[in-house]
Design a protein around this nucleic acid. Structure first.
Length: 961
RNA sequence: GCGCGCUUAGCUCAGUGGUAGAGCAUUACCUUCACACGGUAGGGGUCGCAGGUUCGAAACCUGCAGCGCGCACCA
């Protein structure tokens, strides 16, 4: 610190030290250095969207990780914080498509075609690549950037393919026509986790249908979706419902499409236990193509129904009828009135049509939950389609590890949420109708008969097994087949070998057009980023994996506990046989100060980079951490960051004060010269070290930040620094040097305690004050990053410097006297700048040095120590265990007001005394309470009584005047 | 419907059996030689409600209310 600006200026300091750390390879992990004495510590970053920008959520998340990583380095561990980015399938492709459409380059992605669009997305990726990484660097993130990974790196993609093929081989991945959540905006299937339920205000339409066999008899059906009536293939009632049981087996006339002839409108009335008597009218329309529950009914009963229909009545209804197309518009099957309309428009029109036909009984306002696409924010459409599904692997180990506590969740309650989800696992729809992502490594071809097949494939089909299509050793595909009507064979071949893919191509096989859900690559993150190959022999020799896997901590948001955390655990067990991380820390969710989620559309999401520019990265980090309790959402307020800045400035100036005193850096501390204030601050430091270390151990970062704040500001600056001025303003060189040494000792410890939270300013001050100078390079000599984490004082240390609790009592009493003395000024309306003389009538011997401290702290021009002092009547005074302190100024005190104040205080004290007395007076209390508590209460009583006497005396002194 | 969490000063939140706390905001005074991004001293709370356990409850138990979040195929 050659120049000492009055205020801390973060900008140049931050870039300077970040550069320094990079140049000195401080963030690079070396598995070769890991040993018993130097254990490994590792975290993998939750990979942000490669084209994304930093949000406050990232700030919270990555600050926590950085604190953990930096603390671990100071604990002497070999630290790997592995960074990277995610290709974020839907989000990225949507953004690029939208941009191209806006620019008028395309109307639809088909205008470009798959290859061209992918080129555009890669261009986009290259252009935005690294933005968020640069932003993380601004924040101070100490990631090992040499190991940065991207989910679509070639090696990573290979891992994804290998895992797919392996799960396919194991029969856990299958393809099937199922009811899936379809997003009509993104035109892709979604997993259950990507659907969020939202309450919607809609209408419940009650309409009548005539029973075909009993002309003139009508059933009334309640529905929220009349537009799907043309897709109804049955009407269901509960067989135990006496109102309707008699109708089972008969038919109703479906009102829409209106133009169909009567015989094509007949649909059966079926019985199904699923139907709720209570709801609506107890009659349910069954639309198997557009409702999950209806599809299940259809599956349960279709055989029965349609067998019966063979020779029976007339309907030409053989299965689900698709009336809503992929893009959310009505199909031709919906009939002339609805065809081509948007599904919501069609709802209105269908209602009107029913009314027109005289079949609409009534409409009721109705609130229900509708699934929305999380990403596109439109209602999802349950839709039948061919998709790939995964039955989760390694379920039981994955569930047990959290339930039995080998893996710890912070806060713990998330373990329950996780367990509940694991207990009710549904198969995962992993295919997406997108182009940006990992294309499903399955090739397919239809053969008319077995003879057309190459021999290798025919053999494989017979044994349902592996074969080499390319004929190359060690290159294979895994083949499955399905024999359909007319002796036709559909053959699927899954492989991760390029040679095989090429060979399949030559045979006329085509690759599945779909890509995998982004999370299907993200769930491999903890080991795929470390060079995992899936070959046990190779992997056991991989130094990264052996040293750093399983990782130590995972830090993420609870919103992706199922998307990511749970799936990583299962993938971890399946592919490494181990849990992927030992501890999972869930941050809160950042909201604005009104409690709303941060969102672009609300515009309530401040840009962290602006905040860093305005206040500094350390300020942002500290502000966020100080207000982010474990397990609670964080209501963000820019004032928190301002507080962080102010705090950094305070730290800066305290160090500036030290520097202005000059002298030797970190000189020897002479126990004989220690003042009571020195001992007090050393004891407070010891407490702070304990408190902060424990808080960090329990992942209670806001507690640690608050403890740091309190110790540094309220103890060190407010009292110790001020008291030290008594020495520095004096002439005793030896005492000055000793006080400097204590200051250095406390500051060097404080800077280290602060470093995980405030990496930049602590480095600047560490080097600026020269605390690095006598240390070995790898223990703080080069950078504070590797300085030893402060340890609580041992008994030897405390004995040597005479640090015991009696000091604390004395010093606390001293500071209490000072506060009261300062209050006298206020009560007397004496301006802070006015020079005054205090007189102390001491209750015990007080050294000249202590008197000097009192004088300085009181901002007194003079402090007379006079045990014979006889104040004039009416002299304002306070009485403390150290003695009576007078402010002998005549006429400046409003006696009546002072009396009022003292009386108020007296009644407060009386109330306290009453409370304690009541407790002590209770015979049960004395009997049952532990002795320490009893003693404490007695002590408290005598203190209050002593206080009462002092106030009473003061009042008396006033009253006699 | 089930589960979880929250309710403490004007605001945001700590505080899990023993004297109600912090930051911000607020009032008054102060540009005093580390810091006005500062200092000093104040004011402000029947700890959501009602019971219970206990010598003692903001904390533990029960019930209720309000808010929030998960999970769930009521059309």
């Amino acid at each position: 610190m050659s120049e000492i600006p009055k205020a801390y200026e973060p900008r140049s300091v931050e870039s300077k030290w970040y550069q320094f750390w990079l140049e000195h390879k401080c963030f690079i992990a070396d598995p070769a250095r890991v040993s018993e004495k130097r254990p490994a510590y590792s975290i993998v970053i939750p990979p942000p969207n490669v084209t994304g920008v930093l949000t406050l959520g990232h700030v919270l998340n990555n600050t926590v990780q950085d604190i953990l990583a930096r603390k671990a380095r100071m604990d002497g561990k070999e630290v790997l914080w592995l960074p990277g980015t995610d290709h974020a399938g839907i989000a990225t492709q949507t953004v690029v498509e939208r941009t191209l459409k806006k620019a008028g380059e395309i109307k639809h992605r088909n205008d470009l075609g798959r290859e061209k669009l992918l080129e555009k997305i890669w261009e986009w990726k290259e252009k935005h690549d690294g933005i968020i990484i640069q932003q993380l660097k601004r924040l101070g993130a100490s990631c090992d950037w040499t190991r940065e990974r991207f989910t679509m790196d070639p090696e990573y993609s290979r891992c994804v393919q290998k895992v797919f093929v392996d799960l396919y081989k194991k029969g856990l991945i299958y393809r099937g026509k199922r009811m899936v959540n379809w997003c009509p905006a993104s035109l892709t299937a979604l997993s259950d986790e990507e659907v969020v339920m939202k309450q919607q205000n809609g209408l419940l339409y009650y309409f009548r249908v005539e029973v075909a066999e009993d002309a003139g008899t009508f059933l009334t059906i309640a529905t929220t979706r009349p537009e799907t009536i043309p897709g109804d293939t049955a009407v269901a009632v509960n067989p135990r419902d006496p109102r309707y049981a008699q109708f089972i087996g008969k038919h109703v006339i479906r009102p829409l499409p209106a133009e169909l002839p009567r015989e094509q409108k007949l649909i059966p009335i079926i019985g199904d236990e699923h139907v709720d008597f209570e709801f609506g009218t107890g009659v349910l329309k069954v639309t198997p193509a557009h409702d999950k529950a209806d599809f299940e009914i259809y599956q349960r009963l279709c055989e029965k129904i349609f067998k019966k229909n063979e020779n029976d009545l007339l309907p030409d209804i053989r299965g689900p009828i698709e009336v809503i197309k992929a893009d959310g518009t009505m199909s031709e099957a919906a009939g002339a009135d609805l065809s081509g309309l948007d599904r919501f428009k069609a709802r209105k029109v269908a209602g009107e049509k029913l009314a027109e036909l005289g079949l609409l009984e009534r409409e009721e306002r109705y609130t229900n939950n509708v699934g929305f696409s999380e990403r596109a924010d439109v209602p999802v459409e349950p839709r039948l389609s061919e998709q790939w599904f995964l039955q989760y692997p390694s379920k039981s180990e994955s569930r047990a590890v959290a339930a039995e506590g080998q893996m710890k969740f912070f806060p713990e309650r998330w373990a329950k949420v996780y367990d509940h989800w694991m207990a009710n696992l549904q198969d995962w729809c992993i295919s997406r109708q997108l182009w940006w992502g990992h294309r499903i490594p399955v090739w397919t071809k239809i053969y008319r008969n077995e003879l057309e097949m190459p021999e290798a494939i025919r053999e494989a089909i017979l044994h349902d097994a592996e074969c080499s299509v390319s004929g190359l050793a060690g290159r294979s595909s895994y083949v499955r087949s399905e024999r359909t009507v007319a002796e036709t064979w559909t053959v699927w071949a899954a492989t991760y070998f390029d040679e095989e893919a090429a060979a399949l191509g030559r045979l006329g096989f085509t690759q599945d057009p779909d890509v995998l859900d982004t999370w299907f690559s993200a769930w491999l993150w903890p080991f795929a980023t470390m060079g995992w190959t899936g070959n046990p022999e190779t992997d056991s020799k991989n130094p990264e994996l052996t040293a750093f896997y399983p990782t130590t901590d995972l830090v993420t948001g609870p919103d992706i506990i199922f998307f990511w955390v749970a799936r990583m655990i299962m993938a971890g067990y399946e592919y490494t046989g181990q849990m992927p991380f030992r501890n999972v820390y869930f941050t809160g969710i950042i909201r604005d100060k009104q409690g709303r989620k941060m969102s672009k559309s609300l515009g309530n999401s401040p840009d962290p980079l602006d905040l860093i520019d305005t206040y500094g990265a350390d300020a942002l980090r500290f502000g966020v951490m100080r207000s982010a309790p474990l397990g609670q959402d964080v209501l963000f307020d820019e004032q928190h960051v301002e507080l962080g800045r102010n705090f950094c400035n305070k730290l800066w100036n305290a160090c500036r004060f030290r520097q202005m005193q000059g002298g030797e850096t970190e000189g020897e501390i002479d126990p004989a010269l220690l003042t009571s204030d020195d001992k007090w601050i050393l004891l407070k430091l010891d407490l702070a070290i304990r408190e902060i270390s424990n808080s960090l151990l329990e992942y209670k970062f806001n507690e640690a930040a608050q403890a740091l704040y309190r110790f540094f500001w309220s103890e060190f600056c407010d009292w110790y620094l001020e008291a030290s001025k008594a020495v520095f303003f004096g002439n005793d060189l030896a005492r000055k040097a000793n006080t400097s040494s204590v200051l250095d000792f406390v500051l060097s410890n404080t800077l280290r305690l602060f470093h995980p939270f405030l990496p930049f300013i602590t480095e600047e001050l560490w080097r600026g004050l020269g605390y690095n100078e006598d240390l070995p390079t790898d223990q703080g000599g080069e950078t504070i990053m590797f300085a030893r984490w402060p340890q609580p004082f041992g008994d030897d240390f405390k004995g040597h410097y005479g640090l015991d609790e009696s000091i604390v009592r004395f010093v606390d009493a001293k500071y209490e006297l000072v506060s009261q003395g300062r209050n006298l000024r206020r009560e007397g309306n004496i301006s802070s700048s006015k020079k005054v003389t205090f007189v102390l009538k001491p209750a015990q011997e007080l050294s000249a040095d202590e008197a000097q401290v009192l004088k300085i702290l009181l901002h007194a021009e003079r402090l007379d120590i006079d045990s014979e002092f006889r104040p004039r009547k009416g002299t304002p005074a306070v009485r403390s265990p150290l003695g009576e302190l007078y402010l002998p100024l005549e006429g400046l005190i409003d006696i009546a007001a002072e009396k009022g104040r003292l009386n108020k205080e007296l009644s407060k004290i009386d109330a306290e005394i009453e409370k304690v007395k009541q407790k002590l007076g209770n015979p049960a209390f004395a009997q049952k309470v532990p002795p320490a508590v009893l003693e404490e209460h007695q002590h408290r009583l005598s203190e209050w009584e002593a206080k009462r006497k002092r106030v009473h005396d003061s009042l008396g002194a006033l009253g006699e005047s």
